[in-house]
Design a binder for these strands. Structure first.
Lengths: 203, 203
DNA sequence: GTCTATAAAGAGATAGAC
DNA sequence: GTCTATCTCTTTATAGAC
């Protein structure tokens, strides 16, 4: 969560003196509000209090703002997979860790993951992101299959359908979760895990 | 599912002779592929084999294509609520009917619902659609609360969180379901209901 | 690091012929 | 019902001054 030690655009004194990270944050917020395509560099510059040309000092093109945002989201999700590999445990434990970990990443990097989940593959940058996202999905499906073979996941439904439904539920959190709201990340992760594992029926 | 008896644009002979419905279908497909904003009237006209101007004969503006599509989706979902009201039954039965009914509408009107779920409220048309969609969500939440008071839905999690998670799962189907794939609508609705009610854990 | 000015392309929409 | 041609506005991006 610390700012990257980028060699460019340190917060010097001068005029506004915006950092690369400031520009990215504002851009991502605008992309979420209006969609990437519908967000013009003009809107961005208004929101930042900068001229359009000044933005090109921080990012060489509009699409590089998108690339940086998607990388932030994918890095977080891939980190969950690295952690679960390092931790070990039963397939059931590892699956629970991945679901809970994904919820936490989703909340910690909410705007970036929100953007990632809206990507449809209409440019090179988007297709690259989709490729990495699909690799994540495949890893989770493999984990579900493992847990199913170990007898902890129901075997009456196709594993990839189960995976898609559960992660559809997880991912839908970006549609409504607000950090300033009543639910903490831990509380929500626990709720998601409960509904994913046991369903909504009364015990 | 029959074509509407619109008084306009019957499939006469002439040149291509496209109907209003043909144009809408092609537009919705393009909106899904590239996003509404990123789809230009030029792209639309190429895909249809028409000039841009010809499209304006069928729809007076680009946004009217979106309005018609969203109305198709919302009409289907609102129909499920009307049916459940007419049918009666226990809260548990009615909740199951709404979940299963939503899955069926989602599949029958896949492109239209896909578009609806991507709307963010950036124009009058989108805000109107969001208003109707929120009314649907509220009706479902009320049903979850009823079922919870009747003892059939778990009471350890906030009802609106439960509703959002379950419908997040349902709605995520548009991200991957393809009619030509192996799962029938009935099969998928039954899978969704099973995971929603009982979770992914082995019985 | 930020500005003004501008280039070049593409957008939504309309006019009027056939 | 479809066409060509065109209007006007906005877009991404660059040039060059400070």
């Amino acid at each position: 969560m610390m700012s990257h030690p980028e060699p460019v655009a340190a917060p010097k004194r001068g005029r506004p003196g915006l950092s690369r990270h400031d520009v990215l944050e504002a851009a991502v917020a605008a992309f979420i509000e209006h969609g990437y395509d519908a967000t013009s560099m003009g809107m961005l510059s208004s929101r930042l209090g900068l001229s359009k040309a000044a933005i090109y000092h921080h990012f060489p093109a509009k699409v590089e703002l998108l690339r940086a945002a998607l990388d932030e989201a994918l890095g977080g999700l891939e980190g969950v997979l690295r952690q679960v590999d390092a931790l070990g445990g039963s397939p059931e434990q590892r699956l629970a860790f991945v679901i809970s970990g994904a919820v936490h990443v989703l909340i910690e990097r909410l705007p970036y993951v929100t953007l990632l989940l809206r990507v449809r593959g209409n440019s090179e940058v988007e297709r690259d992101a989709l490729t990495r996202r699909r690799a994540f999905d495949r890893a989770v499906t493999a984990l579900v299959i493992e847990a199913r073979n170990a007898g902890s996941v129901r075997s009456d439904i196709d594993p990839s359908v189960v995976t898609r439904l559960i992660f559809g539920m997880v991912n839908s959190i970006v549609e409504w979760y607000r950090p300033e709201g009543p639910e903490s990340a831990d509380q929500l992760a626990s709720d998601v895990l409960a509904v994913a594992l046991e369903g909504l029926s009364a015990s």
